[in-house]
């Protein structure tokens, strides 16, 4: 479980790096600022990352409980 949990979290880290930095965010250089798309996008990705991390941790904890003891 240890290994898989670390790997899953690292996967999320890479997703976050990809979605929260250039070149992906550079899309918003061209989108009209008045729409408010940029803050909505950033807060949205942020919240998704948090939920995904919580889900990954919880799932790993429950599988660890099933197999008992490490």
């Amino acid at each position: 479980m240890e290994q898989n949990l670390s790997a899953a979290l690292f996967f999320l880290f890479l997703c976050g790096m990809l979605l929260l930095s250039a070149p992906v965010t550079s899309v918003f250089e061209t989108i009209q600022a008045g729409s408010g798309a940029l803050p909505v996008y950033l807060f949205g990705v942020w919240l998704l990352l948090i939920i995904a991390a919580a889900w990954v941790v919880r799932r790993s904890a429950s599988t660890a409980d099933e197999s008992e003891t490490d």
Binding site: S6, F13, L20, A33, L38, W46, L49, I50
Partner: peptide, 20 residues
Amino acid sequence: GVGFLPIYLGPTLMALLWWV
């Protein structure tokens, strides 16, 4: 604008690596 956010997004990303 959103310029204050990296200060909090960075720790969020790093938190994903905390277990390691």
